[in-house]
């Protein structure tokens, strides 16, 4: 009986380990599955001789035109880049500034509270941000600038900035916190003030971590869907001013997939945009990860 029991136990252990292993590998599985299923849907396009060059270089996005549908995503790409760029222009200085304040200047209770507030901000759902852009910020922009519509590049940029700030702050703060205290002490003992420590010691020491923070913010902004869908006005054009409505890659998919006839060209092209997004964010995240790894190996 004891032998049987032991055998059973060994088998159970083996089984459990197998399950754990499988779960461990699941992340890889899912990444491949995501890529496969999206790419799979676009495959017939290439069999039909889809013009990939036009897809990437034309600014004409007229998928529903009955006469001559055009599938150029340049305007969408520019829209994504513009709104991301604007968001980063606002979020990076503020986010890194807040990270510096939290890690080097704020003390005790203030720090705890601010960190919790920023952490909570990170969880406000994107649809709520979109709602805020649409209902609150839009009218403000109209009132201040006199623009005909309030949902535009500027609106989307501000909303996206607010959304990506928590990531930048928390990753940036981690990067600053990871700088060994002995550096601060050394600089302090040489008579440096806190500000001098920040920009003469911490910035050089933590630059890759701070870069990673920015990249993660960029990744977040590029991939954001609901907020930009609701706040940017959804007009597939290359913007010429901050007050032009724009359209992004993500918003296009979200807005048009529901209406596109299943397995038509438009439908498949939307999946192809998904592939483009997947690749872009993959590259951004990979870079951020390598940058972080870079710091870690250098530390050792």
């Amino acid at each position: 009986m004891t032998d049987g029991w032991r055998l059973f136990k060994r088998a159970a252990e083996w089984l459990i380990e197998a399950v754990v292993r499988l779960c461990g590998w699941s992340a890889i599985l899912f990444i491949f599955a995501i890529f496969f299923f999206i790419f799979h849907k676009t495959w017939p396009l290439f069999a039909e001789g889809f013009d990939l060059r036009e897809f990437l270089t034309s600014a004409r996005w007229q998928p529903t035109s009955t006469v001559h549908p055009c599938y150029g995503i340049l305007a969408l790409l520019v829209g994504t880049l513009a709104v991301t760029g604007l968001a980063m222009a606002l979020a990076v200085p503020l986010g890194l500034g807040a990270a510096v304040y939290l890690s080097e200047f704020a003390g005790g209770k203030t720090k705890e509270i601010l960190k919790i507030v920023i952490e909570l901000l990170a969880t406000v759902p994107s649809v709520v941000w979109g709602f805020i852009g649409y209902m609150v910020l839009g009218p403000i922009i109209i009132a201040v600038t006199g623009a005909p519509v309030g949902v535009n590049l500027l609106n989307g940029g501000i909303i996206l900035a607010l959304m990506s700030v928590p990531v930048i702050v928390s990753v940036g703060e981690d990067a600053l916190k990871a700088v060994p205290d002995s550096y601060r002490e050394a600089a302090l003992a040489l008579g440096a003030s806190r500000w001098e420590i920040v920009y003469r010691v911490l910035f050089p020491a933590a630059k890759s971590g701070l870069l990673a923070a920015v990249l993660l913010g960029v990744g977040r902004a590029i991939g954001e869907t609901m907020a930009v869908l609701m706040a940017t006005g959804h007009a597939a054009q290359i913007p010429h001013s901050l007050l032009d409505p724009i359209c992004t890659l993500t918003a296009t998919i979200a807005a048009e997939l529901g209406e596109a006839p299943r397995d038509g060209t438009h439908y498949r092209v939307l999946f192809l945009i998904g592939v483009v997004l997947f690749v872009i964010t993959f590259i951004v995240n990979l870079t951020a990860d390598l940058v972080v790894k870079g710091i870690r190996t250098e530390k050792e």
């Binding site: 992340a27 899912f30 990444i31 599955a33 995501i34 299923f37 999206i38 849907k41 994107s126 993660l216 990744g219 977040r220 590029i222 991939g223 954001e224 869907t225 609901m226 993500t250 998919i253 979200a254 997939l257 939307l270 999946f271 998904g274 997004l277 997947f278 964010t281 993959f282 951004v284 995240n285 990979l286």
Partner: peptide, 13 residues
């Protein structure tokens, strides 16, 4: 990367 995949891409998936 799974954490970084845009939500709309998850939707497509």
């Amino acid at each position: 990367n799974l954490a970084g995949v845009p939500s709309i891409v998850h939707a497509l998936f």
